[in-house]
Design a protein around this nucleic acid. Sequence first.
DNA 1: GTGAAAGTTGAAGTCAACTTCATGTCAAGT
DNA 2: ACTTGACATGAAGTTGACTTCAACTTTCAC
Lengths: 154, 154
Amino acid sequence: MRPDDLLTLGDVTRRSGFAASALRFYERGGLISATRTAGGQRRYERSVLRRLAFIRAARNIGLSLDEVRDALDTLPGGRTPTKADWARLSKAWSARLDAQIRALRALRDGLDSCIGCGCLSLRHCAMSNPSDVAGTRGVGAVYLPRPLTEEHRH
Amino acid sequence: MRPDDLLTLGDVTRRSGFAASALRFYERGGLISATRTAGGQRRYERSVLRRLAFIRAARNIGLSLDEVRDALDTLPGGRTPTKADWARLSKAWSARLDAQIRALRALRDGLDSCIGCGCLSLRHCAMSNPSDVAGTRGVGAVYLPRPLTEEHRH
DNA sequence: GTGAAAGTTGAAGTCAACTTCATGTCAAGT
DNA sequence: ACTTGACATGAAGTTGACTTCAACTTTCAC
């Protein structure tokens, strides 16, 4: 770490766990920002770490980067965000997670009955019906799982 | 539908909800198969519908096509799969769904405490820690959600 | 037997979220 | 001053799961 309180790219990769390429990618996408040295190197404010923590958590619960950007855009422009700011952003997730859990439970329960009846019917089985349970296309998107991708590929 | 009991591609798209391109893609990948007419068009057996139902359900709970293929490969080669065959394949999912639900609950509970403490700390918050909660990289993959993609794009 | 609808193919495109690469510059300890 | 490791850039590559396209060919109801 520098004597002043700015962080280098390396500092941030080490402390956030994000790859340098991801940080640059996020910067291009407007999710984070950095000042530059005279020589053109990035220098990050400490607050970028919390921002990155938010991004990681958001990605973990399934938000796309677009959604994350939208959320981050609601943070106050002038000042460093407060705990209350972050709490407000986070609050919506609880509902989202609840929805996801509900969807999964419905899926599991549907599955149990499928095993019971041995059906897996196209039209009647909640597990496999495209416009059922997991459907609700358009409004009130329902979320379903994907594997967690390995964070650091070598 | 044809007088004989084979289904055309159109029949299968309509009855399964999968796009024709997806059916061809699945066939290339060895997940489904079809016989051909003299003219080279695909004719599907009725059992492909159940297979597709399985594929959809599997995808819904987050299995990759590779995993689906592996599962389908354990079906008996000679005969049409029975209910018991499908039930066996499906059984493993319940555990998987339970794991997913547990992961989400942990995430939500971690989130609740984050909101409580306002932290979102890089090092201590379960929500944002890369190697925590959602971690367990390598063995015993933990699953987290992704948005359900719209089934029929126009 | 004919016209429209449905089907065929391989190759290339898409999308998200990054990573990798090639090539060149910066920063800083000795 | 020098060297070494960190950092810079734009372009292209990756992965999974499909979709789209262009250019034909088959089927089948009438």
